[in-house]
């Protein structure tokens, strides 16, 4: 049964501290310093940004220990790193390195096509991607302390992030309108733990913070997902695949703080140089989608 015990309090606690902030993908210590200088609330250490993983193909794994260590010593903000879905040994390595958050991520090539990592035994908190409420609650049931809507990583296209956020917030709203005797059938339909379905029906929100990821490339994108109910944003390829990463990073940080002030979004959108090019998600073949990884 899901428990807000002392460990979960510490794990969710760190997620609370990241709210209203921007978590940036970085592949080198130098990028990590730029991200921190621009006001990132945390960085995500990885070997290749999603746009490059998409382009270059091959198996995408946990970043090299050397890169992670360099990034950890380069900055004082929290450092996250990605492990493959189901690859609990990679997660154990990341915990041994002392990373602050582990992202069990569909951006990397899954190591298990049936099971996710049992996240409860870890001291390090986990964030997991989700496209809908059922998926979010399954991950929370496994011990995730933060959910991020998946979007379509490396696409530079916000459409999937919007779809997933609307799905989750809409399903939560719907859940709160059900009678108690309707919740078990709903749990069955969602494929989600009954206890968590009851919790969400009663409280009208997820029991852990819900951030947004996958396709955020501009200050207005950040504003959009925040207005749709995201509590912080992950920016992957959107920063270091743009013409002026430092400027864009700073602008997205400011836009996330002032997400509901169009005047500020306008100011920080000015003169940013070219955003990442981006792709039409509808033209991707089903096997090219990253978001469908996760079960």
């Amino acid at each position: 049964m899901w428990q807000y015990d002392e460990q979960m309090k510490l794990k969710v606690g760190l997620a609370e501290m990241l709210k209203g902030g921007v978590i940036m993908d970085v592949t080198t210590a130098e990028q990590a310093r730029i991200a921190e200088g621009a006001g990132a609330a945390a960085v995500m250490a990885l070997e290749r940004v999603p746009a490059d993983i998409r382009k270059e193909g091959g198996v995408a794994r946990m970043a090299s220990v050397k890169v992670i260590k360099e990034i950890m010593s380069a900055v004082t903000i929290p450092v996250m790193a990605k492990a493959r879905i189901g690859h609990f040994a990679e997660a154990q390595v990341l915990e041994a390195l002392g990373v602050d958050y582990i992202d069990e991520s569909e951006v990397l090539t899954p190591a298990d096509e049936e099971h996710h990592i049992d996240k409860w035994p870890f001291k390090v908190p986990f964030v997991c991607g989700a496209r809908n409420l059922g998926e979010a609650l399954r991950r929370i049931g496994e011990g995730a302390a933060m959910i991020r809507t998946k979007g379509e990583a490396g696409s530079g296209n916000i459409v999937e992030a919007v779809r997933h956020l609307r799905a989750i917030t809409g399903e939560i709203r719907q859940l709160t309108t059900l009678r108690d005797d309707e919740l078990m059938a709903k749990a069955k339909e969602l494929g989600a733990p009954f206890e968590l379905v009851k919790w969400v029906a009663k409280n009208g929100r997820l029991p852990v913070p819900n951030f947004s990821a996958g396709g955020i490339a501009t200050p207005a994108d950040a504003s959009l997902v925040m207005q749709l109910g995201a509590e912080a944003v992950f920016v992957g390829s959107g920063i270091f695949k743009s013409a002026d990463p430092e400027k864009r990073a700073k602008a997205i940080v400011r836009a996330t703080t002032h997400y509901n002030e169009p005047q500020v979004i306008a100011e920080c959108s000015e003169d940013l140089g070219e955003p990442m090019r981006g792709i039409d998600v509808a033209k991707l073949k089903p096997e090219e989608l990253l978001q469908t990884r996760g079960w």
Binding site: E16, G39, A41, I77, K250, T257
Partner: peptide, 14 residues
Amino acid sequence: PGGESTTMLNVLAD
């Protein structure tokens, strides 16, 4: 509040 002091300082200075 709690959060990242470097992030706050950045936006404060702006």
